[in-house]
Structure formats: C-alpha cells, structure tokens
Design a protein around this nucleic acid. Structure first.
Lengths: 220, 220
DNA sequence: GCCCGTCTCACCCCTTCGGGTGAGGTTTGC
DNA sequence: GCAAACCTCACCCGAAGGGGTGAGACGGGC
C-alpha cells in the first residue's frame, strides 16, 4: 500500500508547518507539497499526481472555492478537503458545490484530521460535526438565497416573471394586469430571451433555484 | 455539567447491552433506558426527558424512521442518532428528513460513537464517513426523493414526474427513456390528472413546494 | 428638436401541450 | 383462467405557447 500524497494550501506558513508535522506523524500520509495560495496550488496539481489537497477556504490570490473548482476540473481523482476557521454556511455550500469532498473546521483534533485525510482519499467524505448540521439542514429543506438574478429585466418584465414563476398562464396574466394577450406574450418572450430560458417551465425552475419565489400554494 | 441522558432502541438485546457498556464507559453519558422497538421508544420519550435517542433504523413494530419522526414531533429537544448496518442511501435521506441529527454505521469505533452522542447532544450533527459522501451528493445535485406526495403514481409515472420537475419537454423525456412521444404524453397526462395539476408548469411548482426535487442546474 | 427605451398591441407562423379514445402487451394476484 | 393493474403506442382534436415582425404612444435625456 502506497502512502497518500497530500498538498497543503494555506496562506499562513505557520499553520502549514504545523499541519505538516501533524500529518507526517501518520505513516499513511506523505505531505509532498505546500503552497500559500490557490493559483500555486493549481500549478502543482497540473504537474504532479496528488491524492488529497487540504485547502484553506479564505486565501489571497484566488480563494479556496475557486481553486477547488479548478482542481476538480483538471484532476478529478484528486480529493479536496476544505479547512476553515468558521463553519460559514454559504461557504460550506459553495465548497461542496465546487466539488470538495469534505469540510473541516480548524479546531479539529490532530488524529481526526489525519483520519479525515485518509477517509477522503479512499473516496468517502469527511464533515466536521458543526458543519454536518448545516448540511443536514440543506437536505431537509433547501434554502432560498436572494439574488440579483433579474438584472436586465425592466420593471414590467420582472412583474411578468413573478407571475410566470407562480405558474400563471398567459391568459391569467393578461387578466390580472389588464393587458391584451399579445402584450403578455411579448413580455414573456422578452423575459425568456433575456434570461436565456427555453420556456415558462424553465422560468419556474430558475425562480426556485435562485430563491426568487417564496412559498406558494397551487390553486385547486 | 449534567450527564447526557441516552436511550438505546434496537431489537437485538445483545447489541443494546454492548452499546450500554461502551457508552457507560464515557463519564459524560448516562444510558437511562433501552427498548426493543419504536413504539416502546415513543412511550419512553413521552414520559421522560431524554437528550439523545440512539436508534436502529430497521426494527419490528414501527421502523426507526417512523419512530424518529414521531419522537421529533413530541420532543423536539431530543436528538435522534440513527444506527444501521448499511449506509442505505434511501434510508439516510428518509432518516434525515424525519429529523435525525446523525447517521452512523455499526462499524463505528466505540470512542467515535461516544463522541457522536456528545456531538448531537450539543446540537451539532454526526455523520459516518461513508454516509457523508451520500449526503454531499444530495446537496450537489439532489436526486428525486421518495415521498408521500407521489402516492398513487406508478413507478413509471413517478419517473416521468421527476423529469417533468426538471423541466424536460415531452420530446426530451421520450429520448431519455426510449419511448414514443405518444407514450410519454399518456404518462404525463396520468401524472397531471392524478396529482390534480393543470399543466407541467404546475408540476414543477408542486415538486418544489413539496421538496420533491433538490438543487438543479438549467442546461444552457 | 431627436433618439432611445419602455409599454402597448397586432398579425403571422409552427410547435408543443393537454385531453379524449382505443387497443395490444405484460405481469400480478385471486 | 380471469380480472386488474401497468406499460406501451396510435390517432385525433383544439388550445396554449414560443418566435418573428412591425408599429403607435409615451417618457426622459442629449
């Protein structure tokens, strides 16, 4: 059995040194590289085979999330384990969506850290207890995040979009806004075209995915 | 600091005894009850204050998921930690949605088990490494979850509904499932009729409002 | 003044969709 | 063996939706 090749990515050199000490104590692990920012990390990934990248989420010169996305893209076999001082909810989600295999807070105990590295190397995932709660909440009922995803729409178009998202037909919209159906169709066309959506079905999905619509009941 | 009051729920008495031994070795933990099925567990929860319920997911007389849902309903402060021999994907999701605070496999090491009990008691969550990967996948691109909101649909219809919820056109569906468009239309009609929905737009809304679909990306 | 964006509406086209009906095949259960 | 689901597919129809073009009215900004 070969050792697990690990790279450390953190802007604090002091922390890198201590991480190296901790991980090197585990005979299953070999720390082959350590760098201070995301750009350098990507360079290393491009040139060397790595099993696990242990990455701080907040860094200068390309943040951890962006670096993770790029690393996963160019080296899918390499696992990325995020390391952070906080269990910032948004960053957790962003990191996971970027393709991170785990998310640990820096108060993790040394033995647990080494174990987590081995876990992700073997294809499983590692979550810090405090982070796990956040993730479970996400599974339970997906959150809605507010976005400026309607930029570029005129006020009227945004209004039409809101009705589209609620499942209104063109006919219902023209009744509610006192417009001719032709006008409604013009607005709908503009909305779909500007947002790059194929049809009103996709408009509904877009609305939900971007948190642009609250809870609603279906009539009937 | 008071001890953490724990109840064990498992149909195998042998396992209950060994769990009791393991957990009692930790001075932070006090095993106050142990029962052999979900119904008894609920009775205990009704009468006593508990911090953590350690529950097997497969049991006679009300399965672990149903019992969890009921326990969470009547005693929201009590945390439920699922314990299972497998990391069955569907059961993981069901347990989490029922309100479980953690999910461990029975190959967990004793010290880790005690730590997990303390973790969930303090409000965080505990996930076994093998389970965490499953959950992360759900966050990344959540697949369709099985729910009562789809009762009455045949398996094929439920499958069609899942594609409807993702914004697929009839044409795309018939390509993905290798069916004629006429067949797809038949299924779509049955789905809309059974769920009392006007059109596919409302089907998407229904899916989101009932948590039947996770985060997804729109193509393009 | 003029231009530009917005809102309004009209007409055309063709595709997609929802609804109705019927029908042949399989599997499941009584 | 028969009934009852279920899956499959076909044909029909009318309505709804998406796309294109054009155009009149109003407003603000230069």
């Amino acid at each position: 059995m070969t050792t697990i090749r690990v790279m450390l990515v953190d802007d604090q050199e002091l922390l890198r040194v201590s991480l190296r000490t901790v991980l090197s104590a585990d005979e299953r692990i070999e720390v082959t590289h350590d760098v201070g920012n995301g750009s350098d990390a990507i360079e290393v990934v491009r040139r060397h085979r790595l099993d696990v990248v242990l990455m701080d989420i907040r860094m200068p010169r390309m943040d951890g999330v962006a670096a993770t996305a790029e690393i996963v893209r160019i080296a899918p076999a390499t696992r990325v384990l995020m390391l952070t001082t906080f269990d910032d909810d948004e960053l957790v989600v962003a990191a996971i969506r970027a393709g991170a295999s785990g998310y640990l807070t820096k108060d993790v105990r040394p033995a647990a850290l080494a174990q987590a590295v081995c876990d992700v190397a073997s294809g499983t995932a590692a979550l810090a207890p405090g982070v796990a709660a956040t993730v479970l909440d996400l599974v339970r009922q997906a959150p809605m995040r507010r976005t400026a995803a309607l930029d570029g729409l005129t006020p009227r178009e945004a209004e039409i979009f809101g009705l589209l998202a609620r499942g209104r037909s063109n006919n219902e919209i023209c009744a509610e806004l006192v417009l001719s159906e032709n006008t409604v169709k013009s607005h709908v066309r503009a909305v779909l075209q500007k947002l790059g959506l194929r049809d009103r079905v996709h408009a509904v999905i877009y609305a939900y995915e971007n948190g642009l619509v609250g809870r609603q009941e279906l009539p009937g």
